[in-house]
Design a protein around this nucleic acid. Structure first.
Length: 773
DNA sequence: TACATTGCGATCCGT
DNA sequence: TCGCAATGTA
């Protein structure tokens, strides 16, 4: 029984009690860095090994897919025999799975599509059009917010309508009803629906609900402080028979109120479950005593919290360092200098640093500064890869193949590339489909019967329909990556993209190629070849899921994305009133408390050093605003804080501009060239992965670039240009023949001799190219 | 139907 | 400052 010691090993007494807790509700209040993930995984292993509970009767819900993956990995390592794994996933992935399994019970089929924000906006716009509601007086986004909030608290369109008071709400109610109708017609769910629909299904079909509740002997929920009301209802439903519900969380780290999370869930757990056992994990294993005390100074100003005080056996450590600078450029330079100094003098690695900010917009200036210094960095989030317009276009083709009812996706690509099917044609076709009560997809082949559709359009429609029918016949038998190639070929999408001579063509092609490799990677990694599975994965990945965290790079991300992570050195720029706390929270005490918790989350990510920065002026949009240091800084006791103020007039040397650096060049290029196409978003990239490599070369036209030297983490950059030999993990060795773009968005064309001389365009930021020395 | 120009609006966090 | 949507024109 060596395994018994494995999962009880190195646990403190409270952790052990949590792991060995028997039956009944359990609330684990787990402070930052108190080992809650460890408790959860050990407990699951304990239940399986010691209590002989079948893994399939355990359900564990995590906040991100990444966390789910890690949990599965750790559980596997702990189990002695080769047993199945419990059901571990996010609320959204779990619900999507359940809805596919139980598709026979509802109006949807197992091939349903999941709509992201862009799709939702498209659909709402369409609904508003149908209802004759102008999109200028009320924006589609505001209605979506309203609908989303309603769904989070399980209000159907009818429920919502019955409560609608003013004109705005009454209009929203009409849109909501139409939107729901649209989702059904399209065989689609939005994110909120995934949860709401499962709750409704399990309530509507009591025997089905009962069978799930019977099945799950144990339900465990991580990050319980960030669950919505709908998720709360779901958890209660699934644990209603055996009542073995174990929730883990920290009310001080509830930061998703704006997304429907209800902190009451965790605050009232003991009220909901009077027989609940509550355990407090208060020993912190992460941060120095000084950092912990400073973080506590801040969060203890909140009214609405369960009092707790973390403690640590660690040393006091360095005080929190607060640096006040004059503007964001100086801030970026301070950050750069700090990294450079600590790397060269203290032997720290780039991977030891995290830069955590309130808003994505802050990353640009910092990126520029790091890139120019040759510091390798990796940015999480921003403009998301799967939301780039060319990627969405290609995905829309795939979605239609799987789910032809998906009119939102169909509409998106019906004339992309242009095939002489104009707005008027589509409008008539939609009307026709609506009249006949048939899906838009069906109508594609019936152009001849639609009045006002000319012969050219009719032929084009027929051909499109023919292509989809052909691809649909192959969908069951063809792996997704092969199918994707056929789509790109058959639709003429790549040819069209390639033929356009706009400035960002190369980048767009590179993104499409990246999608192709993502699909191959998916097939390789998961062993799953179905298109539906790929699309589901793509729909539900979060930015942070794509972050590998293994490359030796400085990590840049929002404070929200940093939840659950830790770094030896944490830097928080933008500690200013208006930014953190964000100005939108000034009027509302609850929101202000959430900002404070967000600050607390950021601070408690730090293991050894915490550096905070504020700028006296910051440019936002076109105007420069005066800023003062965050009120949260003032809440930190002086004994834990060391304030540094850099002289206002020094160090302005590296402001971008003058054609050096990506901002300057980008502007010049855009002005001279053609207009960026619809949905084009240059600039900061999205993807996790090995991260942004390469910087703008100094010569004009971007004919040269630099690879930061990762291995030696020195600032020595490896320069490259046409003729440089490089290596790619899948294409082998090759030679650079062309360079386009600039900065992190630089795209190089490489001729791969090992792959028979094929030329590929590869984006540097994806980090797959390494110089051959 | 496709493309260019102009003007407006937004910029907080994200499954 | 920028991107995008609504307009106007070939």
């Amino acid at each position: 029984m060596t395994k018994t010691t494995t999962y009880l090993e190195n646990l403190n007494s409270v952790q052990e009690r949590a792991v060995r807790h028997g039956d009944g509700p359990l609330l684990v209040l787990a402070g930052a860095g108190s080992g809650k993930t460890r408790v959860l995984t050990r407990r699951i292993a304990y239940l399986i090994e010691e209590k002989n509970i079948s893994p399939r009767r355990i359900l564990a819900v995590t906040f991100t897919n990444k966390a789910a993956g890690e949990m599965k990995k750790r559980i596997t390592e702990m189990l002695s025999r080769d047993v199945a794994l419990p059901w571990v996933g996010t609320f959204h992935s779990m619900c999507a799975r359940l809805l596919r399994i139980e598709a026979d019970w509802g109006w949807w089929t197992r091939d349903f599509t999941i709509y992201d924000m862009t799709d939702q906006v498209d659909l709402v716009k369409n609904c508003m059009g149908r209802l004759g509601i102008s999109t200028t007086t009320f924006t589609p986004k505001s209605f979506l917010g309203e609908i989303s909030r309603a769904k989070d608290i399980l209000l159907t369109a009818e429920d919502y309508a019955s409560r609608a008071g003013n004109h705005y709400e009454q209009t929203a109610a009409r849109v909501y009803a139409e939107y729901e109708k649209g989702l059904r017609e399209n065989n689609a769910f939005d994110f909120d629906d995934l949860i709401k629909e499962v709750v409704q299904l399990l309530r509507r079909e009591p025997e089905l609900g009962r069978s799930y509740a019977e099945r799950f002997l144990h339900v465990l929920v991580d990050e319980y402080q960030d669950t919505s009301h709908a998720q709360y209802a779901l958890v209660n439903l699934l644990s209603s028979v055996h009542r073995n519900i174990c929730v883990v969380g920290d009310d001080d780290q509830s930061i998703y109120g704006w997304r429907g999370a209800d902190i009451t869930n965790i605050l009232d757990f003991e009220k909901d479950h009077p027989d609940a056992v509550t355990l407090r994990l208060e020993q912190n294993y992460r941060s120095t005593a000084g950092i912990l005390a400073a973080a506590h100074d801040v969060v203890s100003n909140n009214e609405r919290r369960k009092e707790k005080e973390l403690w640590t056996e660690r040393e006091e450590g360095a005080p929190v360092r607060f640096t006040r600078v004059s503007n964001e450029y100086q801030e970026a330079d301070e950050i750069r200098d700090l990294v450079l100094t600590l790397v060269s003098k203290r032997g720290l690695q780039p991977r030891d640093f995290a830069i955590l900010y309130r808003t994505h917009a802050q990353s640009r200036v910092i990126e520029d500064s790091l890139r120019r210094a040759g510091i390798a960095y990796d940015i999480v989030g921003g403009v998301r890869f799967y939301e780039r317009s060319e990627v969405k276009d290609v995905l829309a083709y795939l979605k239609v193949i799987v789910n032809p009812a998906d009119a939102v996706s169909l509409r998106r690509i019906v004339n992309v590339p242009p095939r002489k099917i104009g707005d008027k044609t589509i409008e008539r076709l939609e009307e026709f489909a609506l009249d006949r009560g048939i899906p838009l997809y069906e109508a594609l082949g019936m152009g001849g019967e639609v009045v006002g559709v000319g012969p050219a359009a009719r032929t084009a429609l027929g051909e499109l329909r023919g292509m989809f029918d052909r691809l649909r016949r192959k969908v069951e038998t063809t792996p997704v990556n092969i199918l994707l190639d056929e789509v790109l070929d058959g639709s003429g999408y790549v040819a069209w993209l390639d033929g356009r001579r706009t400035e960002d063509t190369a980048q767009r092609l590179a993104n499409v190629e990246e999608l192709v490799s993502a699909s191959s990677e998916f097939v390789e990694m998961s062993g799953e070849e179905s298109l539906g599975a790929f699309l589901e994965q793509v729909s539900l990945v979060a930015d942070i899921d794509r972050w590998e965290g293994e490359a030796n790079t400085v990590s840049l991300m929002t404070l929200h994305n940093a939840k659950g992570l830790e770094f030896p050195i944490v830097l928080i720029p933008g500690m200013e009133d208006g930014l953190l706390p964000h100005e939108s929270s000034f009027e509302d005490d609850e929101e202000m408390e959430e900002e404070r918790r967000l600050c607390y989350v950021g601070m408690t990510r730090a293991m050894n050093q915490l550096h905070m920065f504020s700028a006296d002026t910051r440019r936002r949009g076109g105007t420069t605003n005066l800023r003062s240091p965050s009120r949260f800084i003032h809440e930190i006791d002086e004994s834990h804080l060391e304030t540094v103020s850099t002289a206002v007039e020094q160090k302005r040397a590296s402001r971008p501009g003058g054609g050096y650096g990506m901002r300057g060049r980008g502007r010049a290029g855009r002005g001279a060239g053609a207009r960026g196409g619809a949905g084009s978003r240059g600039g900061a990239g999205s993807r996790g992965g090995a991260g942004a490599r390469g910087g703008a070369g100094r010569s004009s036209g971007g004919s040269r670039g630099v690879f930061p030297d990762y291995e030696n983490q020195s600032q020595e950059a490896v320069e490259f240009g046409p003729g440089t030999r490089v290596r790619h993990p899948s294409w082998g060795e090759g030679v650079i023949v062309g360079i386009a773009g600039h900065g992190g968005d630089m795209v190089v064309t490489v001729r791969f001799d090992e792959a028979g001389g094929v030329e590929k365009r590869i984006m540097l930021r994806y980090g797959k190219l390494t110089p051959v020395t």
